[in-house]
Amino acid sequence: MSLLVFSGSVEQGLIYGLVALALLVSYRVLDIADLTVDGSFTLGAGASAMLVLAGHPLLGLLVAPLAGALAGVVTALLQTKCKVAPILAGIITMTALYSINLMVMGGRSNLQLLRTETVFTAVRALLGDSVGPLVLLAAVDVVVCTLLGLFLRTRTGLAVRATGDNPAMVRASSINPAVTTLIGLAIANALVGLAGGLIAQYQQFTEVGGGTGTVVLGLASLIIGEVVTGRSSMPRRLAGAIVGAIVYRLILALALSASVTPQNLKLVSAIIVAAAISAPAIKQRVQLAQKKRKAVREHAARH
């Protein structure tokens, strides 16, 4: 793997690490499989790209997470106020977002940002081509992880964590679980929106279907991260999400260099996720089968 490919993978890992963080909040902490993500990723990307074209790349990175948060709020309200099942609530928002994203992108299905000023052209000019983006993205991730870690220690943050664990206890703590669900999903989708906003400026390109599969990709990163850093404490888990995303990008880069074509990348992601999530169940089955065989053998030996 060339240095260029390597640093490119790390950079993308730092961006997609934000998606993994989002899934840490929604999937792990709130225990909700939130499919809004595929839509809010494109929403952030589209909003960011439009603002880049209008000459405000930095503003784009502020609006992208806000737009994502809004999408999260819609999903949360569908769940908590309208009693729509969590998965369906996410699918509904994601579907609506497809049209909304087209509107955001001015009716175009893709946007080119070549030869326009982005935050990355700015840091490249400031710090050089090789380290500029890396420094910017690392700084973003450190700030996001720190803020998220601090938030999860506050009363509200602890209540968000308890929501996925034991909603009755949240009520007993005189906090409305509908509110903690809303806060959690807003934060998660804000992170996704920010990732989308960054990727649009990083790749200088965005398309309306670009978010498809983001949720699976984020899950793959999250799970890889959990294998690497463990789940013993919140700071570890936060760092793990970022590390997992970087490792995942490196695996994809290796797969590409081993002649997996780009079209097949999402298949590879899906296989990684399916394998990782089903691993405990498969392990259990294997152990059970071994136990059975052993019991049968011992029984036969006694007769």
């Binding site: 009363r155 602890l158 964590r161 664990d165 034991n166 007993a172 005189s174």
Partner: peptide, 23 residues
């Protein structure tokens, strides 16, 4: 006994939530 606590959070986190949330 499972009803009143959040299992994946530590004792300290459970107590903190209860402490900061009380009336």
């Amino acid at each position: 006994p499972m009803k009143g606590t959040a299992p994946s959070m530590t004792m300290e986190e459970n107590l903190t939530l209860a402490y900061l949330s009380a009336g």
